[in-house]
Structure formats: structure tokens, C-alpha cells
């Protein structure tokens, strides 16, 4: 069953540009253009694109904040902007740059207030809360007013707030933006567990591709409002960056290896880098070939990093 479904989703913004004191020109900016995709229950999908691509606008339509200009969508069986209140109980939303917590209240009081607003049964609330507090290590800051939390602590608080009512779908818009490495890792681990243990469907918007690499098998890439890629992360690499690199540490330093179908791109003492096309060799085949001409002490395979792959897609588009 598809938890999220969109067909031809389109959203325009009318913006006025002031030129001169009174005169202004009207301009229609298309933020999302004809976007169609679906997300099955339990999937964790990365929604990726450069700044201004239309990611947040899509999420706002799917959560009922914005009314689309054209196209249709459904989330958990509801048309978001028509059934916003019912939908709200079934989804969890975190916008990295906004807060759903009460600034002047201790964190725990925000959680308690949410329980009443969402009318969650006390036991279910407590169970969810205990789990989040433990996994996200929030115990020590529960009594701290939200305004005094660090960004990392607040983000973990936001995540908890989005999960207390046990949503079936989670929309995360740049949840790791501005976080330090430790907080980022904590959030990622938590999301991975959540998806695995509770089968929560997650649409994760980010421009941090490490998030995606760590969490998502499937990837939607959006640029200038249109989806330009929808598929697996590995397939994306295969398609756009088919070259991998074998790094071998040989027993002796020597001249560059000459192996048919592989290019020795760098030599540093006994260490050599061989770039090869994934269709030409599997890693083990190439290792065998190298082993025939030299004695190998150690080796690693470098996959192209996703960042450069995506950058390549963007540039190919324009």
C-alpha cells in the first residue's frame, strides 16, 4: 500500500519585485512542477535537491500547509489540505528551521501539552516518551526550558514531539541542518531504528547526502521543481558514476601497474590507485589480475561519493 502518493503536483508562488518606489513587477515562480511519486508503507525515502529546488514546498503540500495549484496527492489515505486535522494525528513533521515546541516551557511540559492536543492515551504516550527519551538521551534536559536547549538537544526534542502520537508517516525537512557530528549521528541512528522497529514510513528531505547514504535505499532528486531521478542509491551510482577505484598496498614499491581495462591513476610508493569501470571488472576479478603481477599486502575499494554523483546530475540538467 502506498502511504504517500502524488500526481502532477504543482505549486506556483506569485512574487512581487519592487523596482522603484511604487512600481513593482509581478512574477510567477514555479516552486514545484508536475511532481509525481509514491512511497510505500515502511519505506524510507530521501528527497534531495539543491537549495530552492522545491523540497520544502512539496513537504508543505503533503502536510496540508499549502494548497497545490494543480495535481493531486494523498497521505495516509487523506487529501492533506482538505483533511488537515485528521491527517495531523497520523503524521509527524519536523522542519529543521522551525519549532513545534513551546519556547518558554520545560521540554517535558511541551510533551505533556502535545499529549492533550493530540489526545493520546496516557499509557501509549508514556511508552513512546520513555523510548524516545532513552534513545535520544534526553533525560537530563527534560526540565530545561526549550529556549535554553542547544540546537542538537532541541532537534532531538522536536523529533520526540513528532513521534509521541505514534504517526505512521514521518516528514523530516532538513532535520540535521546545523547539527554537530555527534548529534547528527544520534539522529541518524535513531531514525534507522525507528524505520526498522516500527516500520514507520519516512520522507527525509535534506541536502546533506551523508544522511541519505546512511539511511535511505531510495532516492528522489528534485531540481527546479521537477523530479529528475527516482530510484535506488546504488543504481544511481551505477548510472552516473560507473567508475570505482581499487587502492592496493603492494609489498614492494615499483612502476605503475599496467592492467588491461584499468587505469593506474596514482602511485605513492608501494600504494597504487587503479580506476576501473564496474561493467568491465568486478572487484574480485581485478584483485586477481593484480595478484598475478604483484604481491598484495592490503587493499580497499573506493566507491564514488554520492556528493559528486549528485553534483554531476545537477550540472547535466542545466
Amino acid at each position: 500500500m502506498n502511504v504517500v502518493e502524488t500526481h502532477g503536483l504543482t505549486k506556483n508562488f506569485v512574487v512581487y519585485e519592487r523596482n522603484g518606489l511604487i512600481r513593482r513587477t509581478r512574477e510567477v515562480r514555479t516552486a514545484v512542477a508536475d511532481v509525481s511519486f509514491s512511497v510505500a508503507a515502511g519505506e524510507m525515502v530521501g528527497y534531495v535537491g539543491p537549495n530552492g529546488a522545491g523540497k520544502s514546498t512539496t513537504v508543505k503540500i503533503l502536510t496540508g500547509i499549502l494548497v497545490p495549484d494543480a495535481g493531486t496527492c494523498s497521505v495516509a489515505g487523506f487529501v492533506p489540505h482538505k483533511r488537515r486535522l485528521e491527517l495531523a494525528r497520523r503524521i509527524g513533521v519536523v522542519f529543521g528551521q522551525r519549532s513545534n515546541l513551546w519556547w518558554d516551557l520545560p521540554l517535558i511540559e511541551s510533551f505533556d501539552l502535545l499529549r492533550h492536543l493530540y489526545r493520546v492515551d496516557h499509557q501509549k504516550h508514556q511508552a513512546n516518551l520513555d523510548e524516545c527519551v532513552e534513545r535520544l538521551a534526553l533525560e537530563d534536559v527534560l526540565k530545561t526550558p526549550v529556549r535554553q536547549l542547544s540546537l542538537g538537544q532541541r532537534m532531538r526534542g522536536e523529533l520526540t514531539a513528532a513521534l509521541l502520537h505514534g504517526p505512521t508517516v514521518l516528514f523530516l525537512d532538513e532535520p540535521t541542518i546545523g547539527l554537530d557530528v555527534v548529534s547528527k549521528a544520534a539522529v541518524r541512528d535513531f531514525l534507522a531504528d525507528l524505520n526498522r522497529d516500527r516500520n514507520t514510513t519516512v520522507l527525509l528531505t535534506t541536502h546533506d547526502l551523508d544522511d541519505i547514504e546512511r539511511l535511505c535505499k531510495r532516492l528522489l532528486i528534485i531540481d527546479h521543481g521537477t523530479v529528475i531521478y527516482d530510484g535506488g542509491l546504488n543504481e544511481l551510482r551505477d548510472e552516473y558514476e560507473p567508475y570505482r577505484t581499487l587502492v592496493v598496498d603492494l609489498v614492494t614499491s615499483g612502476s605503475p601497474l599496467a592492467i588491461d581495462g584499468a587505469e593506474t591513476v596514482k602511485v605513492d610508493g608501494p600504494r597504487q590507485w587503479l580506476r576501473f569501470h564496474r561493467d568491465r571488472y568486478s572487484a574480485s576479478e581485478l584483485i586477481n589480475r593484480v595478484g598475478e603481477v604483484a604481491e598484495i599486502r592490503d587493499l580497499t575499494i573506493e566507491e564514488p561519493d554520492i556528493e559528486s554523483v549528485v553534483a554531476k546530475i545537477y550540472t547535466r540538467q542545466t
Binding site: I65, L85, E86, A88, R89, F95, R98, R119
Partner: peptide, 13 residues
Amino acid sequence: TGKFDSIMLRPVG
């Protein structure tokens, strides 16, 4: 400021 977003995400009018 766009903070009205949060208001619209709650299951309350």
C-alpha cells in the same frame, strides 16, 4: 515569518 506552519500542523483548529 512562516511560523504559522507549526500552527497548521497541529490536530487543533
